[in-house]
């Protein structure tokens, strides 16, 4: 056997180099995940067929604002302006559809493609992953809840004779609008994501999210309007009902006669508390799910 020195194998020196450059770290990883998830929620950077559905739903959310601006532009400026709380009552439907369509994409994609292990082997922690995904999804929903009303405010302002006057008359609604829009997005988004994160299969996740919205709704309606008594607390069960109740509370408006919120006779602040509780529970469940999932 020849001595080892003779085998100064340059052949084994592959010239590996250390990386001496800048390491962007955990914060950057979280922010990148947030922005890429937000883009992905609207299909930006994906193929055309994944853009259609988010964009159609977003357009539906904008329709009343566009119609009202169009009517105001053509007819006159004496048109009744849509009240923010009524807009929120309408926009819940596209928000629910967006949850059903997009929440499974946000969580299920990485599970199906088995890319979770790639994320978790980097600076990103499991909790960071869950929170970044959740924040991105809630932001996407805020585009649906807040952007149409921002458009309406600017459009109506430009259509009125005096922009400064118009903004001066309406600025009081702005903080309320923002609180409501953020609340709807947080409560519906967190719970929908918590449900969707339970399964990798898109179809099952969609059905489960839809079931949460649509099965609780008639139950709450019947329990509140027909059964009464302790059943009136069921208004806090259905997302459409408790979210709308919270909007009424934020805007300090009395519920319509014979609406669920009117018949339930629950103090309106309880709906606000319910929104916070649902958002917190959803967030906790998403974090828990991604803390335990096998990557």
């Amino acid at each position: 056997m020849p001595p080892a020195e003779q085998r100064t194998g340059s052949i084994y020196d592959l010239g590996y180099r250390r990386y001496d450059g800048l390491r962007l770290g955990r914060q950057h990883a979280v922010l990148s995940l947030y922005f890429y998830t937000l883009r992905g929620a609207f299909g930006i950077g994906r193929r055309a067929s994944s853009k259609i559905i988010p964009i159609v739903i977003t357009v539906i959310a904008f329709l009343p604002a566009l119609i009202q601006l169009g009517v105001a532009a053509i007819v006159s400026d004496e048109v009744d302006v849509i009240r923010p709380e009524n807009y929120f009552g309408f926009v819940q439907v596209p928000v629910a559809l967006f949850c059903a369509a997009i929440a499974p994409e946000i969580t299920g994609r990485d599970m199906r493609q088995r890319t979770l292990s790639l994320y978790f082997s980097r600076a990103l922690e499991r909790r960071d992953y869950a929170l970044a995904k959740l924040a991105a999804f809630a932001t996407a929903l805020m585009v649906l809840t807040l952007a149409p009303q921002a458009l309406l405010l600017v459009g109506n302002g430009l259509a009125s004779k005096d922009l400064a006057d118009y903004v001066g008359d309406n600025w009081k609604d702005m903080p309320r609008t923002i609180i409501s829009g953020v609340g709807i997005a947080a409560a519906m988004g967190a719970v929908a994501l918590a449900i969707a994160a339970q399964t990798a299969r898109r179809a099952y996740a969609t059905i489960a999210v839809v079931a949460w919205f649509l099965v609780t709704w008639p139950i709450s309606g019947i329990l509140v309007t027909e059964v009464g008594g302790a059943g009136r607390a069921a208004a806090l069960l259905s997302p459409f009902d408790f979210v709308y109740g919270a909007t009424l509370w934020v805007f300090d408006v009395e519920p319509d006669r014979d609406s669920v919120q009117d018949l339930a006779e629950i103090p309106l602040w309880a709906y606000g508390a319910a929104v916070a509780a649902y958002a917190a529970a959803g967030t906790a469940l998403v974090i828990r799910r991604f803390g335990r999932i096998a990557a």
């Binding site: 559905i53 159609v56 439907v93 369509a101 179809a203 969609t206 059905i207 839809v210």
Partner: peptide
Amino acid sequence: LTSRALIVGLLYVFIWEGV
């Protein structure tokens, strides 16, 4: 027709038929 039949169907049922 589409791989997103579930969502398209939901849109049909709840936006078209419902609203």
